[in-house]
Write a protein that binds this DNA or RNA. Sequence first.
DNA 1: TGGTGTAGCTAAAACGTTTTATCACTGGCA
DNA 2: TGCCAGTGATAAAACGTTTTAGCTACACCA
Lengths: 342, 342
Amino acid sequence: MKGISIKDIAKQAGVSPTTVSFVLNGKAKEKRISEQVSKKIQKIATRLKYKPNQLARGLRTGKTKTIGLIVEDIANNFFATLAKVVEDEADKHGYKVLYGSTEDNTEKAKGLLEVLKYRQVDGYIITPTKNLDKEIELLQSAAKPLVLVDRYFPHVSSHYVVLNNYQGAYEATAHLAKQGYRKIAIVTIASDQTQMKERLDGFTAALKDHKIPFNKSLVKRLPFDLDRESFNNEMKKFLTSVKDLDAVFFATNYLGIAGIEAIRSLGWEIGKQIGLVGFDDHDLFRLHSPSITCVSQPIAAIGKSLVDILMKELNHAAGSPAYPQQQVVLEPELIIRDSSRR
Amino acid sequence: MKGISIKDIAKQAGVSPTTVSFVLNGKAKEKRISEQVSKKIQKIATRLKYKPNQLARGLRTGKTKTIGLIVEDIANNFFATLAKVVEDEADKHGYKVLYGSTEDNTEKAKGLLEVLKYRQVDGYIITPTKNLDKEIELLQSAAKPLVLVDRYFPHVSSHYVVLNNYQGAYEATAHLAKQGYRKIAIVTIASDQTQMKERLDGFTAALKDHKIPFNKSLVKRLPFDLDRESFNNEMKKFLTSVKDLDAVFFATNYLGIAGIEAIRSLGWEIGKQIGLVGFDDHDLFRLHSPSITCVSQPIAAIGKSLVDILMKELNHAAGSPAYPQQQVVLEPELIIRDSSRR
DNA sequence: TGGTGTAGCTAAAACGTTTTATCACTGGCA
DNA sequence: TGCCAGTGATAAAACGTTTTAGCTACACCA
């Protein structure tokens, strides 16, 4: 049950494997193979449905036509949708995707990078975890093409594609302020990574611009790895601890979902007693009663941009002048729904 | 920036690559390599952080330690969650996952199989599309380990892991009947594949057992590839066409979501005017108002079972007696919520 | 002395490509 | 005749492993 190899074709055509390789790689002209032989080889190849063994090719050329996609959690709607886009876009260029989830755990991320490395992926799309900067720099100094997504390291020069998180959080908060909410809290993840920092910054800036006093008690930072019940408990504890709280901004989709549950189990009426804005769109936000206002990311554009940059980097000849680091910041869209309308 | 190869170790240890290979593959004893040399090689290997080049190894052994995962749509919550489980389980055995989405399109599925094949994946987990039986049989006759998931081909003997779809649909429908609903419709996908057929059969059987008259007008079969708006329109057209309709069973998660939208845009009150049961659990179903009753699949168990079977098949020595085809049917859980309580 | 057994290691082939270097031939030209 | 250039192809090395077949040295035995 072996596959067809270049040798089989060579034998049938009565030529050497070299010639077959040249023809099949479109180097017939360049290598001065006659039209006649060329045609014959093509014909036999299609007849036998020849497909090059990617392992062998990869071993020889160092190119596997595979990219590694490292996300936070493939089961999360945002990352799953992103993975779909990346898969489709990569496919257009003949690349396949090996993926892995970090669970926001640096050790897991390192493990993933390791295994992707010795599987010789050609390039990486990475949602980095907290302390992954060293590894990223290592990859870079090894001239491995990579693009970061969702977050980046300010002190590391690299390609990245992220949301304008500051703007997203700012708009969300400003919107709440304009609706007349005065005591607005944020629930976020205890993380110093850019995406979270910017969301927090956008939040505080909007408060300031709308002359709403800010204090630490309005910020709740939860660890990433809580289970649903703990999220719920922590949320409830926090929400009831803030005096006169009238609106909350949840800085990630899963926090929003957990938050909705918590608020409801407190018996508070969303949109009436308490305003609410989430992050990332979700079927739940759209169809919840009341529907949930959210900051929506342009996932398709993010995915396209990621693959686009990676492909440019991959096709970038070794000698030519360096392809400048692309720092793409895409704009969010605030989708206003009932949870924040007064 | 080359990686460390077996030759580097050999040079440093002053032995041949062969010896290094033997030691690193745990064949030191068997191949009578002295304790001394063995230890030395081990030491150097860990010091240099040697990781075998999987391409070269794969080329030589024919094993890539990679499995191909073909799902219907990685962006769909059910498949994304499944992918996560598969990824985790495969990782435990040192396998990585190459994935692809079929969009329920046979041509796309064939394409995926093709590319996975010439990337030499060791085994496949496949959510088959309609006419994929020939390809499945081809893979089988090529002795490629594979497990089908979510659906199977009754006329093809293969491993598979599926839900007891009949039971799920039966329970859902029976539950509606017991709640006093009399005119119960089903919205399903126009597909003759097992999972849909069984859901439909379970539905009709439950009606029969509860002495509810069945007729064709209670069944709506929609094409898979509609966009949201078309789903919505088709749903509305159907729902309003059935006289005295008082409950609907949606046979997939996305149909359920679209159905909720449609019903709401008709202004009908879910749980009051119309009973509703969905398929697969989802944050939306849990948190919707009213909450949505659904048939929930044991995704973790499905994923574990898939990888388990595949690994057994992979580790199954060529000569030994055939590993019997595993046909795993897991039981659903009916999660009763407010959308179906009278 | 020669033969046999075995412990300990290695040379070389193989996997299927790509690519470099080279070869054989033809015709033109001096 | 001898030399050169161009044409059309190929042999062989290389990528990094695994694995088969065998080699060397020594001990033991008769």
